[in-house]
Structures are given as C-alpha cells and as structure tokens.
Amino acid sequence: MSNHALPAFITDERLVELYKQMWLIRYFDEKVDQFFAKGMIHGTTHLCVGQEATAAGSIAVLQEKDKITSTHRGHGHCIAKGATVDRMMAELFGKVTGYCKGKGGSMHIADVEKGNLGANGIVGGGIPLAVGAALTSKMKNEGYVVLCFFGDGAANEGSFHESLNLASIWDLPVVFICENNQYGMSGSVKEMFNIENIADRAQAYGIPGKVIDGNDMLEVMNTVYEAVEHARSGKGPVLIEAKTYRWKGHSKSDAKKYRTREEEQEWRKKDPIKRFKEYLIDKGVLTEEKAEQLREEAFQEIEDAVKFAENSPEPSVDTLLEDVYA
C-alpha cells in the first residue's frame, strides 16, 4: 500500500470512518444481491462489490460543495456522497420514502441538493452532464469541482470523446474518473481496447492522465485530491483511470461465462477493504477489535435500512403523473 501525504482534512478519525463506509457500501450491495436472488426486489441492479475504494476514496477528498455524476453501478458513489442507506434501500424497494419516491430505482438514485447529480442508466450518458455542471461552476464562479464517474465501457462511447475535448478547451473544473473494472458487461477490456491504459487517451485532449490502483484507498485519495485541486485552480480537467474489479456479475442475470474463477480469485486477494484495514492497523489508528466493531455496525445499519424500506409505504398510483414537468 502506498503511503503518500494525505490532504489535511483526512484526519485519522476520518480514515476510520471511511473504513466503515467501505463496509457499508459492501454490505448494501451484498444485501441487494441476496434480495434479487430471492426475488424480493424487481427490476435489475448493478453491484460494486470489490470497487469500494474508488467510490469511498475519491469522494472522501471532495469538498461538500463539489458534485458528482455517477453510473448504473452507483450505490457506492451515492453512499460516499452522503446518501442515507435507508432511503437508498427504500428506493430499491420502490417505496415512496426512497430518494426518487420509488420512480427511479437502482439506476437513478440522485440527491441534487447534496451534489449527487445522479446515477445514469445510459453508458456514458452522465459524462456530458458533468461537463455542463462544471460549466455552471465556472460561469457562476461557484468554486466547485465535478467528479465524473464512468466505466471502461463508457470510454468507448462518443460522449466520452466529445466531453473530454469540450472540458479541455474550456478549462472546466471536472475530473473524469474511469473505474476500469475490466468488463463492460461481458466485453473484456482486452477485447474492446487496443491500448494498455484508457488514461493514455488523456494526451489526445491535452490534459493530464493518470493510471492508479483502484483497490488502494490511499492512492485513490491522493490522486483524486491532486486532480480535483488542479481542476479547482482553473487548470482544467484530469483523466484518472482506476484499475479495479467487480466481484459480482454485470447485473442479476449474469452467469459470468466470459471470465474464469481463477481470475476472480486473484482479484479477491486485492480486496480494497482488507488492504485499507491492514494499512490503518499498521498506522496505529485502528485495532482488529475496533475494525470488527465497525464492520458489525455497518452490517446492522444495512439491516435497519432494510426494515425501514420494508415498513415504508408504496407510492400511490395517484402520483404517477407527478413531476414529469416542473
């Protein structure tokens, strides 16, 4: 694990909180996975188990006023940006207490007031939105940065190319963070790219590109922090590629025929939560006992979220046509 200097507001106490947050993200998605397997939630979902460091680590270094755009695999981003797990779970249950009053579901959780401009069901669909939000920051001189999440699959969408170029020529305060989890649904990066690193594309837009270990919390925090402050200072966007792995399938119907058990086991050894725990214990800010306690607390919070969701009312059919127009 790398050991850079962290930004001052990442105190030891904050690091310990982040450790718990990673468990909260993992347990949220593990729970959702179980519910789908049992047919207790309908629709579909995309889980980020194994990718907790890219969500928790990169959002940890943002200021409160900063914004994010997320992806279809976005539960971790939402939690890290301050969404409460009870209202998120309620949304997956389609309940009126959910973030979208039960109208959005897993792929559309947003919290605009908190700077979460939404998960997005269209691959690459959120990238231009991030550019627009960054344009507002610049035009209104609001000083916030937009952190734009997308996956390796989205890097082959036209919106990626157009957006990075636009953000670059206008020097917009946006950081593009590609969570390269090795697969766009079944399409391996080895099959779908003829380059080693997606971040190498940064030079085509005249912006810095960085490749990092996305399962290393510290490297994620340090790199994103540096990039965010670069963007905030008016120097324009940065492209970061965080190499990681999704432990689960693409969505609920995935038999994972496109990859091997051996590969999955290799990546499980790089568990970002385990690595972060070892770092914190080594640093002397966490003990095994405390770590176990935090993990259990996170587990319990998800159990409570489930109860909240189960006990919440369904939306009335009378609300069907509400909110189509402002």
Partner: peptide
C-alpha cells in the same frame, strides 16, 4: 455567454442539460 462550440452535438446538448440542472 455566446459559447462557440466544437462540432460535438452530444456533448454540447449534455453540457446544456448539466448546466441547466445546476442553475443556468
């Protein structure tokens, strides 16, 4: 305020949406 853009209809449409969502 009169922003001349590259020929990037997807990005400029999306930039309009994103900036509208955030107060412009």
């Amino acid at each position: 305020r009169v922003r001349n853009t590259p020929i990037s209809e997807a990005a400029i449409a999306g930039a309009a949406v994103g900036s509208a969502l955030t107060g412009m």
